[in-house]
Design a protein around this nucleic acid. Structure first.
Lengths: 150, 150
DNA sequence: GTGATTGCAAATTTTTTGCAAGATA
DNA sequence: TATCTTGCAAAAAATTTGCAATCAC
């Protein structure tokens, strides 16, 4: 279970160094974009970087970079209902709110809930398995007011 | 939020009829397989059906059938960490246990937990959104000792 | 300098689509 | 019979891979 956070660029470079990874412009750009977007999938990051004009990346590199960082635990990651891998700069223990119409994630900080659930589940035994993580997602949809849809 | 269950074949046919869908051998086979497997993704269903010899289906049809049934709320569905859509015959409100090594889902019936979380979240307000569902997943990995596995 | 990293294009994997042939009510 | 469904093959969409060129250290 991951409980770290990496929002500072300097710290990010330290993490890269610590893992023997080079601080390439692409990696920096990806991380800056992730810090800006919060939750994003590869194509969003690619577009954001390439439209900013400062750095240029290919999709393949972004996929590699994001996966690698997720593997190191620097990012969280999850598959959304629209079949894309979303990465999350914030690896604090938190709940996700997922807008299933617009495919947007938002963090919900609710320590009471996390604690409550963790403690409840900690009391249970799952024969042959160890709990690695607990994932809580609140699936929401925008409260429409005008245009009640077809 | 879905709270129904469809494990009976007769009831399944009624549901099809109710929605104006025909009780084709393929749909029956898919549902029987889903009842047998509990949680499965399209390719698992295809293999299971085609290896049983009784009925034959193509992948495209299984994808269509499963998606359609999920849309009707007959099945639940979720994307797993190995990037495949898993369907779930059981649409009772329940928690999922996900073995992230073998990519296997199991239902965990824990009404206390569901109630606790629902009540807790019901008290919160999410501006502009309505809660559609609450998804709790316990990500586990096998406690290697004597190879639990299937 | 040298090994890590990127870019590029092609390959893989999962899922979807269009349309003709076939089955169901 | 009229329509819904399936099968087939090709198309899409997301992600991965192989390898040469390039860059960070």
């Amino acid at each position: 279970m991951n409980t770290q956070k990496t929002t500072d660029l300097r710290e990010f470079k330290n993490i890269l160094k610590k893992h023997g990874l080079k601080a390439t412009p692409q990696r920096i750009a990806v991380h800056e974009t992730m810090m800006k977007l919060g939750h994003a999938c590869a194509d969003m990051v690619v577009d954001e970087i390439n439209s900013s004009g400062t750095t240029s990346v290919t999709a393949a590199s972004v996929y590699n970079i994001l996966s690698q960082l997720a593997l190191l635990g620097v990012y969280g990651h999850r598959l959304s209902a629209n079949n894309k891998m979303y990465f999350d700069v914030n690896t604090f223990k938190h709940v996700h709110m997922y807008d299933c119409e617009n495919h947007v994630y938002r963090d919900v900080v609710d320590n009471d809930l996390m604690t409550m659930v963790s403690e409840h589940l900690g009391r249970k035994k799952f024969r042959g398995y160890s709990i690695k993580d607990i994932d809580i997602q609140i699936i929401v949809h925008p409260t429409r007011r005008k245009a009640p849809k077809a």
